[in-house]
Amino acid sequence: MSIDIDTARRVAHLARIAVDEKDLPALAGELSNILDFMEQLNEVDVEGIEPMTSVTPMRLKRRADVVTDGGMQDKILSNAPDAREGFFAVPKVVE
């Protein structure tokens, strides 16, 4: 499987990563190498083996339905480039 320049450009756009046109061929090559390696891994016969989801035998940790957090509007907004009247203010987005 190989990633061409158009696919690399598209993936970068979807991830909102700015990539210079001249860097695209190298990026496409790297992505292709990664996929090639995956394909190599796919050759291993794993029939009947349960996928491993964690390296430690742990159960998903659960929480009780209790409000323990929040009430810190100032902290939530403190990194925002622009905030007004308690809201994040962002360039207009309308669909």
């Binding site: 209790v66 409000v67 957090d69 929040g70 509007q73 939530i76 009247e85 809201f87």
Partner: peptide, 25 residues
């Protein structure tokens, strides 16, 4: 209909001050 959110301990109450029912998660 829960008190807290799916993955955080922030409240689900409707109509609260903006960005007040928000955990860092």
């Amino acid at each position: 209909s829960s008190n807290a959110k799916l993955f955080s301990g922030a409240s689900t109450t409707f109509g609260a001050e903006p960005n007040s029912n928000v955990a860092f998660v």
